[in-house]
Amino acid sequence: MVRETPYFSYAVRELPKGCQLCVRGEKLVLFTTGVCPRDCFYCPLSPWRREDVVYANERPVKRVDDIIEEASLQEAKGAGVTGGDPLARLDRTVEYIKLLKENFGEDFHVHLYTTGALATRKNLEKLYDAGLDEIRFHPDLFNPNSRLFKVEIENMKNAFDFDWDVGGEIPSIPGQFEGMKWYAEFLDNLGAKFLNVNELEFSESTLKTLLDRGFQPVSDESAAIKGSLELGLKLLEWGEENTSLSYHLCTAKLKDAVQLRNRLKRMAKKMAKPYMEITEEGTLRFGIAEYGDLDELYEFLVEEAEVPAEWLYVNREKGRIEMPEEVAVELADAVEGDVKFFIVEEYPTWDGLEVERIPLP
């Protein structure tokens, strides 16, 4: 039967190994290129990610050591290799998979997403030899009569020549039930293990396109698309009775409330400085002071306000002095002049995205 998981998602039979690690925040997201043979109208990538760029989580990769550092910071137990289509830069992708396996061992689980357009037997053999554990195919179900779709479907058959987990991964797009059923049966007949279905969401880059096509959000507070979740559940119910595949319906809530939060919590343990508090959401909460001359402010806080120097950190890159929240609260009441105090919450990520700022007093 279709069951609800503890992660706000839905499943039939066993979750793929890649998903098991992902929901616990244990998967590094390794974006090896934004280049892709397709241009799907629902692709959520931002414009700057549609270039030939590499990211490990939020960190731009300038050297291979950036990948190892990010995985270590996260204490990752695996990686999800994505894009674009990682096969569009096959040699780079192969190099990174080998790098992760060499540094973290054979048990470091790596799964990869691909359209299948470039999944020739020769290319798949390179991925397999590099140590790839799981491959997920996302053919263009919207254009089943196109030449590219026929290539994708034919190439998928090559994957079953290798001893790894093979499955599919598709968005749940209202109006596409027949195509989704066809794909599930196709996978099942080939001997695939699973089909992952993702609740469709608006992104900044797809909002206008999806609205123009008649899609609507679930609510004013949600980026999820109306009808997508229900369609996904309908497919799972059908698939349980008509195929032997495992299914996982990955919801918008899972991505935001579970996967991201669990990853942030893992990273926060490594990133948090002594004066920072780790919140339930995995963000870092602390106080800051802003002033034109940071050296002058630091000297004043240590010598005049008698704040212990070990409680203060001068962050020149962000133009502020950081400190424990309670110290900022006390100083905001006591210090007069142009100094501004705030409580901030930030992601413990490479970019340190600020998610909240509270002025004091």
Results as ranks from 00 to 15, higher is better:
Arg147Ser: 13
Asp351Phe: 05
Arg63Thr: 11
Asp140Glu: 14
Leu301Gln: 01
Asp338Trp: 06
Gly80Ala: 13
Gly167Arg: 08
Phe8Met: 09
Lys17Asn: 00
Thr243Ile: 06
Trp350Phe: 15
Asp212Asn: 13
Tyr298Phe: 11
Lys269Pro: 01
Asp338Cys: 02
Tyr42Phe: 15
Asp351Ile: 06
Arg13Asn: 14
Trp164Gln: 03
Arg320Ala: 14
Gly83Pro: 10
Cys40Gly: 03
Glu14Gln: 13
Glu281Ser: 15
Leu294Tyr: 10
Met1Pro: 10
Lys270His: 11
Ala130Gln: 13
Met180Ala: 15
Leu124Asn: 02
Ala257Trp: 06
Ile97Arg: 01
Leu301Thr: 04
Gly84Met: 06
Met180Gln: 14
Val302Arg: 11
Phe8Ile: 01
Thr33Gly: 06
Pro16Trp: 05
Glu221Thr: 11
Leu331Arg: 08
Gly282Glu: 04
Leu211Tyr: 12
Pro361Cys: 05
Pro60Tyr: 12
Glu345Asp: 03
Lys126Asp: 06
Arg3Cys: 00
Gly319Glu: 14
Glu356Val: 04
Val314Pro: 12
Leu21Ser: 04
Phe342Pro: 02
Val64Asn: 13
Asp161Thr: 07
Lys17Tyr: 05
Asp188Lys: 04
Lys27Thr: 13
Asp165Arg: 13
Thr349Asp: 14
Ala223Tyr: 09
Phe137Thr: 05
Arg316Trp: 10
Asp212Arg: 13
Glu346Met: 00
Glu345Ile: 02
Ser228Ala: 14
Lys234His: 06
Asn57Thr: 10
Arg89Trp: 05
Asp161Cys: 12
Gly34Val: 09
Met1Asn: 03
Thr120Asn: 02
Ala79Tyr: 08
Gly131Pro: 12
Gly116Phe: 02
Ser203Val: 02
Glu14Ser: 14
Asp338Phe: 08
Cys36Ala: 08
Asp66Leu: 10
Leu90His: 04
Glu322Leu: 04
Ser203Gln: 03
Ser222Trp: 04
Gln259Met: 10
